[in-house]
C-alpha cells in the first residue's frame, strides 16, 4: 500500500470510496422492499390524493411518519372531526410492535453514534427484518450497512408515495399479489435466522404463540396479545433459555 499525504480532498475521496461499496452491498437485500414499498407507497399516494390531500402534505407525512400501517390507519381520522387523543391512542396501538423491534435492536444500534437517531426513526418492519436478520457481507461495517439499509428503504417509501400521489390517478396496471414480496422476504429471513441460530426455542415459541393468538383472537386484534404472550413466555423460561442460548 502506498502512503498518501492526508488532505481534505483525500478524506473526501475516502468517504465516497466507503459509502459507495456499503450502499452497493446493502442494495441487493433491499430489492424486495423496493418492490413491496413500491406497491404500498404507490397505493397510499393514490388513496391520499383521492381523499383530497395535497401531494405535498402526503409526501411530508411519509418523510416524518414513515409507517405503512400507521399512515393507512391515519387516513380516516384525518378526514373526520378533530380528535387528538383518539388519533394518538390509535397510532400507539397500530405501531406498538415497534417497541419489540427497539428492544431487539438496543445492542446492535448501541454504537451507531449520530446515525443512531435516524436509524431509530426509520425502524419499520422491513428495515428491522433486514437489520436484525441479515449479517452484513464480509468486510462491510455493520453500522454503515444498517444505516444504508435504513436510508434506501426510506427513500423507496417516499419516492413511491410521491409517484402514487402525483401520477396515481392516471396509471392502471394489474399488480394483484405483488404484496406477497413482503411475505416471501420474511420467510427468507426466517430461514436465514433458523440456519444461523443453534437454539430454536425462541423462534418456535414466537411461531406457536402468534399462531394460537391469531386463531383464537382473529386477525384484527391478535398482534398485541401475541406480543404479550411471547414476552411472558420468554420471561418465564429465562432460566433454561439463558443457560442454552448462544446467539
Amino acid at each position: 500500500m502506498l502512503k498518501k499525504p492526508i488532505s481534505a480532498d483525500n478524506a473526501a475521496g475516502n468517504f465516497i470510496n466507503t459509502a459507495g461499496p456499503v450502499i452497493r452491498a446493502a442494495f441487493p437485500y433491499t430489492v424486495p422492499i423496493l418492490a413491496g414499498y413500491g406497491c404500498l407507497g404507490f397505493a397510499l399516494g393514490i388513496l391520499m390524493s383521492a381523499s383530497g390531500f395535497n401531494p405535498l402534505v402526503t409526501i411530508f407525512m411519509s418523510l416524518i411518519i414513515y409507517a405503512g400501517s400507521g399512515q393507512f390507519a391515519a387516513v380516516n381520522p384525518l378526514l373526520a372531526a378533530f380528535n387528538p387523543l383518539g388519533v394518538f391512542l390509535l397510532e400507539i396501538m397500530v405501531n406498538a410492535r415497534h417497541v419489540f423491534y427497539g428492544l431487539t435492536m438496543l445492542d446492535k444500534y448501541k454504537n451507531a453514534g449520530g446515525r443512531k437517531w435516524y436509524m431509530i426513526a426509520g425502524l419499520t418492519d422491513e428495515t428491522f427484518s433486514i437489520n436484525c436478520g441479515v449479517e452484513p457481507p464480509p468486510g462491510v461495517d455493520g453500522i454503515r450497512f444498517m444505516f444504508a439499509v435504513t436510508i434506501l428503504n426510506h427513500a423507496y417509501w417516499v419516492i413511491a408515495v410521491v409517484l402514487g400521489s402525483v401520477f396515481g390517478a392516471f396509471v392502471r396496471f394489474n399488480s394483484d399479489g405483488l404484496d406477497f414480496v413482503m411475505t416471501a422476504l420474511f420467510i427468507v429471513i426466517f430461514i436465514e435466522q433458523w440456519l444461523k441460530e443453534k437454539n430454536h426455542a425462541s423462534a418456535l415459541i414466537g411461531f406457536a404463540l402468534s399462531a394460537v393468538c391469531l386463531i383464537c383472537i382473529g386477525a384484527e386484534n391478535f398482534l398485541i396479545p401475541a406480543m404479550m404472550a411471547i414476552f411472558l413466555a420468554l420471561t418465564i423460561l429465562r432460566g433454561p433459555l439463558e443457560r442454552n442460548y448462544k446467539p
Binding site: L103, M182, F186, A201, F207, L214, L234, L241
Partner: peptide, 20 residues
C-alpha cells in the same frame, strides 16, 4: 437477555402476521 432471545420470536411473529 430479551434483546438476545427476542429476534427469533419477532421474525416468527412477522411471518405469522403476513398470513393473518
Amino acid at each position: 437477555y430479551l434483546s438476545k432471545v427476542l429476534p427469533g420470536a419477532a421474525i416468527s411473529l412477522l411471518v405469522v402476521f403476513c398470513f393473518k
